[in-house]
């Protein structure tokens, strides 16, 4: 609705009431109050049942046996190893996907070439692959019975049931996050700024650093945030390639599973609460970015 504003006779739609519900309260097109309240009530009930109760469960179960046990579950060596591995995985996977996202967005948004639409679809591909299948594909290649299996064992290189496999699987499932945030954003911005900078004598690198990057920083942060959240929380793909060796190839989500299956519920929920906390921080930052810098994020956002 970004029509020529001067044609629209603003007083009938003052900006602060334009699309908001206040204008509708008096307008011809809204529902009776009782309908509104019932719908709002219904929506909130649904959210509570499906989202808030599970979240609350995590923390309640985690602290069921007191905070001493909670703390003990977190500083136990296997838990610490899992935390370390999770952080390590994210520290490798996120920057790599960030670099990829920047390159892909630069090539796609700033240049015309054939097959661009196909390329964009391919980048999204990992989202439509089951995480378990994502793990499987690396097992088929690097696993003991995989294509390179015997060669790898001859050279004493371990990928599956080891950290490299976990990192690979994580990279796969978090592959599109940064790219799909940046591509629409940079396409929207076009190339005018870059051309202006280059015409003023800036080098390509200077142009990227001083012109492009400031324009996409919030979108970039947004993508990194989502990428990191998924990287630390990924379960299915990592589960396939990890081998579940305690203290060595267990990430936090896998550690949660092991504890849970051993009926150490409190400890499982204690580690889970850390991951839930990460989710809450991610959500808060994401909402803050959307609220504060919404116009500098990509207009089209789906996950």
């Amino acid at each position: 609705m970004s029509q020529d504003a001067s044609l629209q006779d603003p007083p009938s739609l003052p900006p602060e009431f334009g699309a908001g519900p206040l204008a509708r309260r008096n307008a011809a097109i809204t529902e009776a109050p009782w309908v509104r309240y019932i719908l709002i009530g219904f929506a909130l009930l649904f959210l509570t049942g499906f989202l808030f109760l599970p979240l609350a469960t995590v923390f309640v179960e985690a602290f069921r046996n007191g905070w001493r046990l909670y703390l003990a579950a977190l500083i136990e060596p296997d838990a610490l190893a899992a935390i370390r591995l999770t952080l390590l995985t994210a520290v490798i996977a996120v920057p790599l996907n960030l670099l990829f996202g920047l390159c892909a967005a630069w090539a796609i948004a700033k240049f015309q070439f054939r097959g661009k639409a196909l390329l964009i679809s391919l980048i999204d591909l990992p989202f439509s692959v089951s995480p378990v299948v994502a793990g499987l594909i690396y097992v088929l290649i690097f696993g003991a019975h995989g294509w390179f299996g015997s060669w790898l064992s001859d050279h004493d290189i371990k990928i599956i049931f080891s950290t490299p496999g976990i990192v690979l699987a994580t990279i796969f499932v978090t592959f599109p996050f940064v790219a799909r945030e940046l591509i629409p954003l940079m396409q929207e911005q076009g190339t005018d700024y870059e051309q202006a900078a280059l015409s003023l004598g800036a080098s390509g690198w200077q142009t990227f650093w001083h012109v492009t990057l400031p324009n996409i920083r919030w979108g970039l942060l947004f993508g990194v945030l989502l990428c990191n959240s998924r990287a630390m929380g990924e379960f299915g793909a990592v589960s396939v390639v990890s081998g579940h060796i305690r203290g060595q190839t267990n990430t936090m989500p896998l550690h949660v599973e092991i504890l849970y299956n051993e009926y150490q519920f409190s400890a499982a929920f204690a580690v889970a609460s850390l991951l839930a906390l990460l989710a809450l921080v991610t959500l808060s930052l994401k909402s803050y970015l959307e609220w504060r810098h919404g116009d500098e994020l990509a207009a089209t956002r789906k996950h």
């Binding site: 044609l7 629209q8 006779d9 603003p10 007083p11 008096n26 307008a27 011809a28």
Partner: peptide
């Protein structure tokens, strides 16, 4: 001109605003 109230008047007559 813009902001003179002409559209609002039209919408009031129509019943789009009360």
């Amino acid at each position: 001109p813009s902001g003179s109230g002409k559209t609002t008047l039209l919408r009031v007559i129509a019943g789009l605003e009360f």
